[in-house]
Nucleic acid binder design. Structure first.
Lengths: 216, 216, 216, 216
DNA sequence: GATGAATGAGTATTCATTCAT
DNA sequence: GATGAATGAATACTCATTCAT
């Protein structure tokens, strides 16, 4: 009779690789997981396939990840870190007084570039799977922070005085995120990612312009 | 959607129900499938559960659907039909000469209403699962048609003469679809679906206004 | 991402077989499980082996038992039922006024016969595995009832007036149970099960005789 | 004990620790194993857990024990040694002419004390696992020796002349061992280990008294 | 000698699908 | 037409054991 444990599901990596060798293994696993999930989707991306593609035994996979979900979570965290690295500089420019108008293109281009790299994987990461509540909350928090910063930046801009900066900011963020996903992950034929970025920028500009108090 | 192989796989309903009783059974199955997929997701929504909830034996389910994917496909078709039914009148108004400005709100409201009904199901139908290529193409075709119609309507509008009607139309459609999904399926806290619709409308209006040739 | 259910572990049979065919399957499975556990022990008695020996697919096993433990539980219940069936008549004789001295031999013989049938299985059922708390409690309850009945019977016996009937009864039950297990499940060489029964009877008789208030 | 196959399998410690450090390691491993088996049972007591708890790498564990079973065997031997150490003096008293009646209480108390120390471990050692045949035989031999000695002692006792000293001795040993296990490892609520010892002593006394030739 | 990364056969369990009744 | 018992390939995951460093 198996003992009745309390099944607390861990999602953090199981142990930190200490030797150089294992560091390599973990990286190979994450890389393999990204490819496998991208090609097969999450459900059909089996742990055995991931291990195989990583050139590693299934046992090694489970030495570093307590379960399949943990791999996904690690991938999401990786993406988050990359996103922050790409966005942080722009946000600092914004807070440093640069005009929203100037920063916007860079933000959008960064977002588009970020997603264009491995569109299938992003689909899996953010659409196909139901992320665990903790991670979901983490992402939502992050977005809220972005919204907050954007709201402040937009409110400060002397030329644009939006009536409801918070809502405007939320829509702006959603538009950027939503359209990037929509257009980059499933690009309509005959539309370059360059054109996509351009249109997103125009869209946001137009929206903000409309939503402000012209003071007339 | 599970398989990556390319076996010969039928996705059409196995046989058309001819008697009233069968008709009822099929409807019960689709309704049950919608509920089960909404609650459990596609992968965890087992055919046995669907059959059980439909009050029908698993054997009967397979009498009408050759496999699990076929149920999903039927559900997508159903959704498509409903969408068309909701959108067609507006499109006809558009083609009949009504101003895009007038029709836009109705379109957006229709879209939002369509998705607000069973958000979880829509997530499953359009995000969680990798639709079979044929269906995917079908959906894309449909969207292309919408784009085409919208392009014509926008181009015809005497007050708005967009520089690239086709691209503008595509963006408009994507914005409506993308934001509806993004905002309705995972609504930010404190934002009503009414507000969402309003902002989408504003967004599109602003964009079109910007994108036109003012003739100055 | 798999949905996070609350893992309540069921141990009851999964569904009651409704057709005659499945009744047969369940019986074959239990019989096979008894043999497999007896030969290999619980841990090494795999579900696949059980299914194979039952001449049934592994899927069928899980159609009737939600997990491996449930099979063990069913086996214990089966044994319990058989034990009660064998013991009940004697207990009724006891309560009906028959002398403890007369009934004792029959009880011991019944116990020995019960265990001599599949000793290895009983070892697995009651020694090797840590039974789930509910079942453990059930067994303890049963034993407590036996103790209670024995205590009453012994107390009533005019010839035996034990000082502490409850404790004496407990020891008597434990002796019968403990020695049956010890001697039947791992019989010393050269001792027949007949001799074992005889000695157990003597032991209990001597004990009770000693433990009574001689009234001197 | 897992394997049912009969591979060539070493169960002796792999190498005798020669340096003081190694001696310490082996002791730490056995101590850890005892704790881990007591807490988790044999099957769930993994070698990695044992090594971890011993503060030793898994590699080191296998330096001293060829496999998991060998650890169990070592533990059994350890227990045997302790048992002999506790029992030997009493047996010598017996052979030295002390009355069985006088020695019995000390034997029983020694047995109870021995088992009360780590009941869970004893359950694992002697009930949960199917000991390898060699060890099983070793244990049985030991018991036979005890029986022999007891038989001689009992036969010699001028006051007790049992009809079949060998059988009586066997029953006595079994009673002591069986009831100790039964009552110490799974004590009925409300019964102290002191009371248990007392009742076992009484039981054996009564039995021997009954089983002797009164000479009438 | 010690370490711990790597291994992979083996385990319980699920679920889409078939087919005898 | 309907039923539901039966199937078994496939999956996530474990753990005793090895061996390069």
């Amino acid at each position: 009779m198996s003992s009745t444990r309390i099944p607390v599901r861990r999602l953090e990596p199981r142990k930190l690789p200490q030797q150089a060798r294992s560091q390599t293994t973990v990286e190979a696993l994450l890389e393999a997981a990204a490819q496998v999930f991208e090609r097969h989707g999450y459900a059909a991306g089996t742990t055995n396939r991931i291990a195989e593609r990583a050139g590693v035994s299934i046992g090694s996979l489970y030495q570093y990840f307590p379960n399949k979900d943990a791999i996904l979570v690690a991938l999401v965290h990786q993406h988050l870190a990359e996103s922050m690295a790409a966005l942080q500089p722009q946000l600092e420019r914004l807070c440093g007084g640069a005009g929203f108008d100037d920063v916007l293109p860079d933000i959008v281009h960064a977002m588009v570039a970020l997603h264009a790299l491995a569109p299938g994987l992003h689909r899996v990461l953010f659409e196909e799977t139901q992320l665990p509540p903790g991670l979901r909350a983490e992402l939502d928090d992050l977005e809220d922070q972005l919204v907050e910063q954007a709201a402040v930046a937009v409110a400060d801009d002397p030329r644009w005085r939006p009536i409801d900066p918070r809502l405007s900011a939320r829509v702006v963020i959603s538009v950027i995120e939503g359209l990037t996903h929509r257009l980059v992950l499933r690009p309509p034929s005959g539309v370059t990612s360059e054109a996509i970025a351009r249109e997103i920028i125009e869209l946001v500009r137009a929206y903000i312009w409309t939503r402000h108090d012209t003071g007339d």
